[in-house]
Write a protein that binds this DNA or RNA. Structure first.
Length: 424
RNA sequence: GGAUGGGUGGCAGAGUGGUCGAAUGCACCAGUCUUGAAAACUGGCGUACGUUUGCGCGUACCGUGGGUUCGAAUCCCACCCCAUCCGCCA
């Protein structure tokens, strides 16, 4: 969320930002309610001060009559205070709800518009393959090499679940190993994270569990939810904590399963691994000081490029347009890999996404840092980025590396873990 | 899951109804002393919100949420977490 004071003092900026993102917000209502809230706050504090003063006189009073009068006065003041406080709390709740609907500010370079307005920034080192045969999609390749079992997945867990088999398992593990080894060498602390998290943590990151259109699976009769990404558990690690500036930037890479209901995606359902209810992902996450986050964001994007260059997958880098940014994101880059088997003649498909969330998540999660020698604290900035989502990375590798006979070349960096240079 | 003991400022640790935002020690910062350092001494040292041009003042916060009371770190209830023991278990 944004800072309440900032919203009130910069109403025009916030309003314009919402317009640019195609989001409606009620800034005037917030300003109105907050003015009311302030008068209630001041009233409650003043009544409480009077009540405190009255209470302090009671032990000093000599006779019972004076004492009783003071007790009555104190009781009356507390009741008045409670009323003012309740009014304040209710307003605060209303305001918080309105504020949480306001998205983050937007980086000035972000293109305005929707999905089709994203700007292509660059291409990866690997060229789009020129097949002299009809390329197969990953589902067909999987059948040929006995890599997946979607039927058993559906039988056991329902549509959208799958089994990996044989080389696909090795490939899946190899991608995890490669990503974590690579990032550990880049200053990221490897973390294996919980796959369930408490509702307030999800909300702090910006997810809305248990809503009608939620992407999140929740566990009945508990406050737990299956995580949609390790971003949730990595960001949550410091929830409510105040750290020192010397600890920033703090770079983490988390390994987790990711669970998504894909509610509302029925029409977009595709065959195979592209859109599934469970997958495995290595996620980068960073807490930084405010003046570090832009550079850190570029770095995350470039690390994603290095990873997919190493995987020998053709891709393009996209600067996502305003309408396509999530609420917490200040700016978002996506890597879209070329998937020759997607659509009729191949399509770009999203394989990574990195967002700079500035202090939007940190404010809601209450992640702060203290600068040595300075009074007070500041909210940290948070950033996240996909290193490898193994399912989608596998699609890109299988489809781009297929040979005319259907065999699949294993990228060099994965060969030590896959145990061969060719599948099939 | 059961039993017991705990959760207080950066850390350790007092505090069982009123003047306690909280003793004391350590750590930290500034100063005195010293050629310098150490020691010693003196002073300072939480966060958030509100208010003020400013010094400052006010309110809240002693695991979390409720309750009792004029008044709660202190009493009551629920929950969470930690430690130890028992049970169970990959």
């Amino acid at each position: 969320m944004l800072d309440r004071k900032f919203i009130i003092q910069n109403a025009e900026i916030v309003r314009d930002n919402c317009t640019r993102r195609g989001v409606t917000c009620e800034i005037d209502r917030i300003i109105e309610l907050d003015a009311e809230r302030l008068t209630k706050l001041q009233l409650a504090e003043d009544l409480n001060r009077q009540a405190n003063e009255t209470s302090q006189q009671i032990p000093k009073s000599k006779d019972d009559a004076a004492r009783k009068a003071l007790i009555d006065k104190g009781r009356d003041l507390r009741h008045q205070k409670d009323a003012a406080q309740n009014a304040h709390d209710q307003l605060e709740g209303e305001i918080a709800e309105l504020i949480s609907a306001i998205p983050n500010l937007t980086h000035p370079d972000v293109p305005t518009g929707g999905e089709e307005d994203a700007v292509e920034i660059s291409l990866g080192k690997t060229p789009i393959p020129n097949f002299d045969f009809e390329p197969r999609n990953h589902v067909e390749l999987g059948e040929q090499h006995d890599l997946f079992d979607f039927e058993a997945g559906a039988r056991v867990s329902g549509a959208g679940f799958y089994y990996l088999k044989n080389a696909a398992v090795r490939l899946d593990l190899a991608l995890q190993q490669f990503a974590i080894s690579f990032l550990a060498g880049q200053g990221f602390t490897p973390i294996s994270t919980p796959d369930l998290a408490l509702t307030p943590i999800l909300q702090g990151i910006g997810f809305t569990p248990r809503g009608p259109e939620t992407q999140i699976y929740s566990v009945e009769n508990t406050d737990l939810n299956l995580v949609g990404t390790a971003e949730i558990t990595l960001g949550g690690m410091l929830a409510g904590q105040t750290i020192t500036d010397a600890e920033l930037p703090m770079r983490l890479c988390g390994l987790s399963h990711c669970f998504r209901t894909e509610a509302g995606a029925a029409g977009r359902a595709t065959k195979g691994l592209y859109r599934v209810h469970q997958f495995t992902k290595v996620e980068m996450f960073a807490f930084t000081k405010p003046d570090q986050s832009d550079a850190e964001h570029i770095r995350m994007r470039d690390l994603e490029c290095e990873i997919f260059d190493a995987l020998e997958v053709p891709y393009r880098v996209i600067d996502t347009a305003t309408g396509d940014l999530g609420g917490p994101a200040y700016r978002k880059f996506d890597l879209e890999a070329w998937m020759p088997g997607r659509g009729d003649e191949g399509q770009w498909g999203e394989v990574t996404s990195t967002s700079n969330c500035t202090d939007y998540q940190a404010r809601r999660l209450n992640v702060r840092f203290k600068t040595t020698g300075k009074k007070g604290t500041q909210f940290a900035h948070t950033l996240n980025g996909t290193a490898v989502a193994t399912g989608r990375a596998m699609i890109a590798i299988l489809e781009n590396h297929q040979q005319s006979d259907g065999r699949i070349a294993v990228p060099k960096v994965l060969q030590p873990w896959v145990g061969c240079d060719m599948i099939g």
